[in-house]
Design a protein around this nucleic acid. Structure first.
Length: 577
RNA sequence: GCGCUUGUAGCUCAACUGGAUAGAGCGCCUGACUUCGGAUCAGGAGGUUCUGGGUUCGACUCCUAGCAGGCGCACCA
């Protein structure tokens, strides 16, 4: 039900016919020709650039070409009210009101699938997001990427693609050892009243570790905590379990559920790293060598050593990357290559990685490895979520990891709620920094786009409530012989953009388009609603407490679109606020 | 120094994968309420899209050279 695609197809048919009888020359591909939404000042419904695209090859001015095309376009279609040619050569089409009545009829008939692109072929996606270290609760910094990944998944799922949501657990390496030690010292603090060595900068000072320690003590009374080395492995496992438990609670409070949690440690244990390095070696992409010192300021500490390297420069990276540390352990990069091999072996069409801005520099090397492993360069799609600037009391709020005073997801949800957090985090393009103003987010006004959209839905719900009708049940209408007013058609035009909005959000993996669209739709609706204030004839419900069929389904499709949009964003649509 | 990224109204940001006279909100100015729920609406002022070149019917968008902010440049994860 994408009227723009429908008209593009119609147009192409007309063009082919004209070229058959020799009155038009066509290029091999008709790619550049589009049917789009004209700017609102033109008072047309759809618009095409066809005359400008074909003018050169036909050696005619866009205006002349447009004039001949318009005749064929008009002839083919009795739903068109008039066609205009506008300055550079656009052809603008205005439909008769009956077009919009038919449009509504179609939507009601396909209410379950409106907005979904059913013609496009469907893919199987793996999306990896969050993947925060299992050493403590999620904080605000993780939040944007988490929501971005979740909503990208929702968009793909809405469009009937297959999606697997995955969390990569970095449970291997130095940070985990330091984390386990921190838990251990907290345990000793509790059991033997030894004070926590807070001057050790490698340790995690956060108070949540105390809870982990308590839980581990309570669950495992038989363990002898006296000697660290003896229980290190066991304690590591329990500590990670505690952290993951907390992370999952955090994710849950954001409304996020991953399908898989993949353990780095297990990959290493299963020799997957060796296998992938072996594979790369056979392709001459691994060698022993030295990396040049970085060009940054502090090269004094640089020690040059020979180590195992991956030839990522073959794929455009600016230096080759280390696979093995001097103590023989694999680098983070090495096991991540193994993880991506693991992903590739599971036969997905596309792999999506959501990364924080601070990891953007990592993209080149990991995409190099995927290119090396898959021999293609369009398998992996990396999306970066830029930083969130927290603003409290009109001032930027700085978090300090060392002091342990950072705002957790838990704090955020308690203060502003899940819906507002999700909506505001998405409201901007993901590759621009985002201001997250606490005072603003809580405010229940137009300044807060969440409430603005929710309010439009609640208004529609209130009409149905007054009429004692169910907003969620299907509406059946036998006669579609009514016509919509200009104000209503304005909203229907916006509704017709919904499939286009979803399609773009899906193709470009840009979720912010959904809230932006919903805001615009809500805005048109609020305007329309207020017409009833000046003119009682324009109210939905008449004096006899009745509503006409056309208004009833009109409201229904608006609320349906808002509902499906808000479902994608993952926020609620209350019927009363 | 190198890489990535951003630069659009006073402020926060859109702009349909190259379209038309660049749009919203906040703030400012003027209006609409004993509300079909004002958490709303109508109107006004506000622009050299960071700068200079290029590509073409057409550039906020693409290329190129700069300028300015952010992030990154490890055997960390």
């Amino acid at each position: 039900m994408n009227i723009f695609d429908q008209y593009l197809n119609k147009l192409k048919k007309i063009l082919l016919e004209l070229s058959k009888n020799g009155s038009l020359i066509l290029p091999n591909k008709l790619d550049g020709i589009t049917v789009e939404i004209p700017p609102s000042k033109f008072k047309s419904d759809i618009s095409t650039n066809v005359a400008m695209v074909l003018s050169k090859i036909n050696n005619k001015s866009p205006n002349d070409l447009a004039r001949t095309l318009v005749q064929s376009i008009k002839k083919e279609d009795e739903l068109i009210e008039n066609v205009e040619i506008v300055k550079p050569g656009f052809i603008n089409i205005k439909f008769k009101p009956i077009f919009w009545t038919n449009f509504v009829k179609e939507i009601i008939k396909n209410s379950k699938t409106f907005g979904i692109n059913l013609e496009e072929s469907k893919n199987n996606y793996l999306i990896e997001f969050v993947s925060a270290n299992p050493t403590g609760p999620l904080h605000v910094g993780h939040c944007r990427g988490a929501i971005l990944g979740d909503v990208i998944s929702n968009i793909l799922l809405f469009n009937k693609h297959k999606v697997t949501k995955e969390y990569y657990v970095n449970d291997y390496g130095n940070q985990i050892i330091n984390f386990t030690k921190s838990v251990y010292f907290r345990i000793r603090e509790i059991l033997y009243s030894e004070s926590f060595p807070s001057d050790n900068k490698d340790l995690y000072p956060g108070e949540y570790i105390i809870n982990f320690a308590k839980n581990i003590i309570n669950l495992n009374k038989k363990i002898d905590f006296e000697n660290f080395d003896k229980i290190a492995d066991e304690l590591t496992e329990y500590s990670i379990e505690e952290a993951l438990k907390l992370i999952k609670i955090n994710l849950n409070s954001l409304g996020i559920n991953h399908d898989n949690f993949v353990s780095e440690k297990k990959l290493v244990k299963n020799q997957e790293v060796e296998k992938v390095i072996d594979f790369l070696q056979k392709n001459n992409l691994v060698y022993r060598g030295k990396i040049k010192a970085p060009a940054s300021e502090d090269k004094d500490n640089w020690i040059e050593r020979e180590q195992l390297l991956f030839k990522s420069t073959d794929f455009g990276d600016d230096k080759d990357r280390a696979l093995q540390k001097s103590d023989g352990a694999w680098t983070y990069f090495a096991s991540d290559v193994a993880y991506h091999k693991n992903k590739l072996d599971r036969n997905f069409d596309y792999l999506i990685n959501i990364l924080g801005a601070d990891h953007a520099g990592y993209i080149k090397r990991i995409s190099s490895s995927v290119q090396a492993l898959s021999k293609t360069n369009d398998k992996l799609i990396c999306k970066v979520s830029q930083l969130v600037k927290l603003i409290k009391d009109k001032k930027p709020f700085k978090m300090s990891k060392r002091k342990g005073d950072y705002i957790t997801v838990d704090d955020l949800i308690k203060e502003v709620g899940r819906d507002a957090t999700r909506f505001i985090m998405l409201n901007r393009s993901s590759d621009a920094e985002l201001d997250f103003d606490f005072d603003n987010v809580i405010e229940k006004s137009k300044e807060n786009p969440l409430y603005y959209v929710q309010y439009s839905y609640a208004r529609i719900a209130s009409v149905f409530r007054h009429l004692e009708k169910n907003l969620k049940s299907e509406i059946k209408i036998s006669k579609y012989d009514f016509e919509y007013t200009n104000e209503e058609i304005k909203i229907l035009q916006k509704i017709s953009e919904w499939p286009k909005c979803v399609e773009t959000a899906c193709n470009k993996l840009e979720p912010h388009r959904i809230p932006t669209y919903l805001y615009e739709l809500a805005s048109l609706f609020h305007s329309y609603w207020n017409l009833g204030k000046d003119n009682p004839d324009k109210r939905f419900i008449n004096n006899q407490k009745n509503i006409s069929d056309e208004k009833l389904i009109f409201l229904k499709i608006i609320s349906d679109v808002i509902k499906s949009g808000m479902d994608i964003v993952g926020v609620s649509v209350p019927e009363k606020m």
